[in-house]
Design a protein around this nucleic acid. Structure first.
Length: 848
RNA sequence: GCGGGCGUGAUGGAAUGGUAGACAUACCAGACUUAAAAUCUGUUGGGGCGUGUCCCCGUGCGGGUUCGAGUCCCGCCGCCCGCACCA
């Protein structure tokens, strides 16, 4: 071979790794274990650059850990249930199962050429009956433990996908997948009791030191803990059973400014009143119709319906407040009833103005401030305000202090009690879909809901289904649902709902530790491999997947499927950025945008010479046609080039822009490294003491910086160092022995990023065995510091000159030399310096 | 509205409070070549003259702390992300 040929090299070395079986993980042994996992892909059929970046990062970690003497687990699988398979079946015919397994085969074939250090023997798809059968077993155990239950609830119904969605899957009132406006329906559904663990899921966030603060914060906000007062208003002329209206408030300090009570149209009292009040029924119906999108809510007028009823203020039974049914009160949060304090909430203020209700301030910005407010006075959180109707007498207090005082006052006077509430709702898992894990229960007319017997698992999805009509094919299957009751043997019906696909991905990491176990997990294997030491994936899973997984890890502990040590599933989390690309656009004759693929654009022009408009980089998407296919890049340059490029340039947590020029440059560099190494392999230059020493120093600095970079997700910085080391090696006058040593080290340092080229270099230079298994080089601390160093000399904090001094020269001597320099002498003008700061090895600063 | 993050050359970006712009891209110049490609070498934040191991300015804007601030603090401006009729 006379030049770098990725195609030849990569296939060979992949085979060599396979033959040696070096990525096959076995529990046990003396080495410390290391479990690195990237979020497994949905088998859409094609890998994209985002996958390449994600899996390359994981691979760098995995290979580095392998080389540093760890027993590494690095598995891969498929998040294979879900809507797209059914949509494909509806659109192009065929069966979701065939579509999915076909896609998995295609994607596996596209992924293999990347040369990832994956233990493919552990591969599974969540749609394998062996996997979802164990998930059903897990479900039954959770059912027994009271972690899953059934209830009648108002749910989010996606009219396009014709299924229920979890709260987490509704974004701005629209289905996360279909984008359709979500409707409210009342259905009997299965729920995971995640809200029972709210406090634990919240407080344990503090232990996740190696998670991005942003993700922890997002989860904290999602769990939404609040402290407030729950109390009741007494209702005058109450219908039976409604003499007390429960209210929850986080601002009990404003209770003396209350001027009305507002209840949700879905509040039991409102529903009761509807029967006798037609106008109210009409009002409520209209409220329910309104959309829940951000825009709709923004525009929607805050409206109320005066029920004519009144409540008594808890502090003064003679003080009566009107009761409204209002369109802005949610039944889902708190108690479905709120008191309005117009003085300190703009919405309540507007409401009060509209319905001519009193505006009573409880506090003011200062003692001098006017009590007549032109708008609501919302106090700053941390600054004290002047309470005129407070609970600690008239006082300057922060809202925080006042709230505590109010709760204490109310509790002491028997008006309600302080309570903690969470925003987190239970996770509805029922989906009215075919391509998901069947919920293993049976409905019996006499026994009710009966869990399946474990020996009947897996409850397999039937193959003979059709998708010619919308809805759930399981529901209309002629025989599948007809079963006998596991308890009494009478004719019964199988549950036709399947599980939310987020269930599948909530425990797969645990299954990887023993993918063929006859139970969901094997405790010994789980004990050995868990927790995942490093998890890598997109920030888009910050809430849903990661919160559900944290819940499942706990649930699996309770049901005995994970050891006590595995409370949190993921010890460290890294969220990587996206791969973006410029968008190329022209306009058609009606002025509508037409997008063009990057490969069709050269120098800003199409093949026919038409200029394209270049729109700034954005996430690669089919609709904008700014997609670069990894397969094309691997064919043209090889996997190592693609891997090198996605790691260079941008820090891994940020987006990286894919450019043709950048990919080409990456390839040029790899070719250069190959050339330099082959020259070194062929040369027999004599030793050159000084140059040899200089090169070895460079080498040890590179070892240090690359090791640090790889360990701290500073891949771009590690690569920058490798560029510099390569340049130093190319320029060096060292003898061939020293050069060979340096080149071998270069191969080792490059091996996590460009494993195939690294093996080739290693082999070419006479390295022993596989570089993948060679012990990672260790930097010699003595070689990291030069004997003489260049110290910058500042005058009044500005760099003016520099001095060469021995590395270990005492401070006072360094100071003398610095003061003797021309620049300092000039600045001193014969006088004495006011102060001299010498930071050893860093800098000298002379203050004149 | 609430919460968080970011702002550095033409571009992506580097910089434990210690030489701002590493490394790469792009551009320009040179070597090799009949020529191009490939390869190699060099220059490139702005300005000034006195062309120097020179001086001034420079990390969104304004202030502060410090011997020293891209980095820490306060206040603005801009962009991005998350949450949101949450009581």
């Amino acid at each position: 071979m006379s030049r770098y040929s990725a195609a030849e090299i990569e296939a060979n070395w992949q085979k060599a790794w396979d033959d040696a079986g070096i990525f096959c993980a076995k529990a046990g042994g003396d080495k410390p274990k290391y479990y690195v996992l990237e979020m497994f892909p949905y088998p859409s059929g094609r890998i994209h650059m985002g996958h390449v970046r994600n899996y390359t990062m994981g691979d760098v970690i995995a290979r580095h850990k392998l080389a540093t003497g760890h027993n590494v687990l690095h598995p891969m699988g498929w998040d294979a249930f879900g809507m797209p398979a059914e949509n494909a079946a509806m659109a192009i015919g065929g069966h979701p199962k065939e579509w999915t397994y076909g896609n998995i085969a295609d994607m596996r074939a596209q992924m293999k050429p990347l040369g990832l250090s994956i233990d493919w023997s552990r591969e599974f798809a969540t749609c394998d009956p062996e996997y979802y059968g164990q998930q059903q077993a897990l479900f039954l155990d959770m059912l027994e433990a009271g972690l899953v239950y059934r209830k009648n609830a108002v749910v989010n119904w996606d009219p396009v996908d014709m299924t229920v969605l979890a709260n987490e899957q509704v974004e701005n009132g629209k289905g996360w997948r279909s984008g359709a406006e979500v409707e409210r329906r009342e259905l009997t559904q299965w729920f995971f009791a995640i809200s029972e663990m709210a406090e634990e899921l919240l407080s344990a966030l503090d232990t996740l030191d190696n998670w991005p603060a942003k993700v922890r914060l997002m989860q904290e906000n999602w769990i939404g803990k609040s402290r407030g007062l729950q109390f009741a208003f007494g209702l005058n002329d109450a219908p039976e059973g409604f003499d007390r209206i429960e209210v929850y408030t986080t601002r009990p300090d404003t209770l003396r400014g209350a001027s009305f009570l507002a209840i949700s149209p879905d509040h039991p009292l409102a529903k009761r009143l509807e029967h006798e009040d037609e106008a109210l029924a009409g009002f409520s119906a209209e409220c329910r119709k309104g959309g829940t999108t951000e825009e709709a809510l923004e525009k929607a007028e805050k409206r109320g319906y005066d029920t004519g009823l009144t409540v008594r203020h808890p502090f003064d039974t003679a003080w009566e407040l009107p009761v409204y049914v209002a369109n802005f009160v949610l039944m889902e949060y708190g108690t479905g009833a709120v008191f309005g304090c117009p003085a300190h909430d703009q919405r309540d203020f507007d409401f009060a103005v509209k319905y001519e209700l009193p505006i009573i301030p409880t506090f003011l910005p200062s003692e001098e401030a006017d009590e007549d407010l032109a708008e609501a006075f919302v106090p700053p959180k941390t600054q004290p305000v002047y309470y005129i109707r407070g609970f600690a007498g008239e006082a300057h207090q922060t809202a925080h202090e006042a709230i505590d005082a109010a709760i204490a006052f109310c509790e002491a006077n028997g008006v309600g009690q302080g309570v903690t509430k969470f925003r987190l709702r239970d996770w509805g898992l029922s989906r009215q879909r075919y391509w998901g894990c069947p919920i293993p229960v049976v409905h019996c007319d006499t026994c009710g809901v009966v869990p399946e017997r474990k020996e009947n698992l897996p409850i397999r999805l039937p193959d003979d289904v059709s998708f010619d009509v919308p809805g759930n094919p399981l529901d209309r299957h002629p025989t599948w649902r007809n079963v006998s009751c596991p308890k009494c043997g009478a004719a019964a019906r199988r549950e036709t709902d399947t599980m939310d696909t987020f269930v599948d991905s909530s425990w797969y990491y645990a299954r990887f530790t023993a993918p063929h176990a006859e139970t969901p997990t094997d405790l010994a294997d789980a004990e050995y491999w868990m927790n995942v030491d490093q998890y890598i994936g997109g920030i888009e899973h910050a809430i849903l997947h990661l919160l559900y997984s944290r819940f499942f890890a706990r649930a699996m502990q309770i049901t005995g499927h994970l050891p006590k040590s595995a409370v949190e599933p993921f010890d460290a989390l890294f969220t990587q950025g996206m791969v973006t690309h410029e968008i190329y656009q022209t306009k058609d004759d009606r002025g509508r945008p037409v997008y063009h693929l990057p490969e069709d654009v050269t120098g800003g022009k199409l093949a026919d010479g038409t200029e394209v408009e270049i729109i700034p980089s954005a996430k690669m998407s089919k609709s904008k046609k700014n997609v670069v296919d990894p397969i094309g890049i691997i064919d043209a340059y090889g996997a190592d080039t693609a891997r090198w490029f996605v790691l260079s340039d941008s820090p891994p947590e940020r987006d990286v822009e894919w450019t043709a020029a950048g990919a080409e440059a990456a390839h040029k560099h790899l070719a250069r490294v190959w050339r330099i190494a082959s020259e070194i392999a062929a040369s027999d230059a004599p030793e050159a003491a000084e140059a040899d020493e200089a090169l070895l120093r460079e080498m040890h600095k590179a070892i240090h910086d690359v090791s640090t970079g790889v360990e701290s997700f500073g891949f771009n910085a590690a690569i920058a160092r490798l560029y510099a080391f390569t340049a130093a090696l190319a320029k060096s006058d060292a003898g061939s022995a020293a050069k060979r040593e340096a080149a071998c080290t270069l191969a080792q340092l490059m091996s996590p990023m460009t494993p195939h080229l690294a093996e080739e270099l290693w082999h070419m230079l006479g390295g022993d065995g596989l570089v993948a298994m060679a012990p990672w080089p260790v930097a010699d601390a003595a070689m990291l510091v030069d004997d003489t160093i260049t110290l910058p000399v500042q005058i009044n904090g500005k760099r003016r000159t520099e001095i060469e001094v021995p590395q270990d020269m005492p401070k006072d001597e360094v100071e003398k030399i610095a003061l003797a320099t021309d620049a300092v002498q000039r600045a001193l003008e014969g006088g004495q310096p006011k102060k001299v700061i010498v930071v050893p090895g860093r800098i000298v600063n002379v203050v004149v």
